[in-house]
């Protein structure tokens, strides 16, 4: 290994560590909650809740992120259960579309509180 090799190795690992620390800091602040979308067990994408977005999931489900909430606004599934679920915003909350095998899970950010159970 030459000197350049070591410098590169150290630089990359350092950058990864710094980025990781930044992400962790964000998560700790609770503002970096993300909606993790999986289709049939495979991760489809990760979307931050603090950024409004409209996501077409495989052309079957339409997820909208608005006002720090993720909401399934339309789907081509027969039962429409996912569309009728309330918007998810807190850690651990999920929106599930069984027919299309789509799962939206919120990770990071504020913990879901007791009132959710009460509802």
């Amino acid at each position: 290994m030459k000197k350049g090799d070591w410098i590169w190795l150290a630089a990359v690992l350092g950058a990864a560590a710094v980025l990781f620390a930044i992400y962790m800091a964000y998560q700790g602040r609770g503002s970096a909650a993300v909606a993790v979308v999986t289709v049939d067990g495979e991760e489809f994408g990760v979307y931050p809740l603090d950024q409004d977005a409209q996501i077409w999931i495989n052309g079957t489900n339409e997820l909208v992120i608005r006002g720090h909430e993720a909401d399934m606004v339309s789907a081509d599934c027969p039962d429409q259960v996912c569309v009728n679920q309330k918007p998810a915003s807190r850690n651990g909350e999920t929106i599930v579309c069984l027919p299309n095998k789509v799962v939206v899970e919120i990770r990071g950010g504020q913990e879901a509180e007791v009132d959710q159970v009460a509802n």
């Binding site: 990359v12 990864a16 560590a17 980025l19 990781f20 992400y23 993300v34 990760v46 931050p48």
Partner: peptide, 15 residues
């Protein structure tokens, strides 16, 4: 994907 959120994976991908 038109999402910057994917950069979340950058540390893993760097390593």
């Amino acid at each position: 994907v038109e999402s910057v959120g994917i950069a979340f994976y950058l540390p893993v991908l760097l390593v």
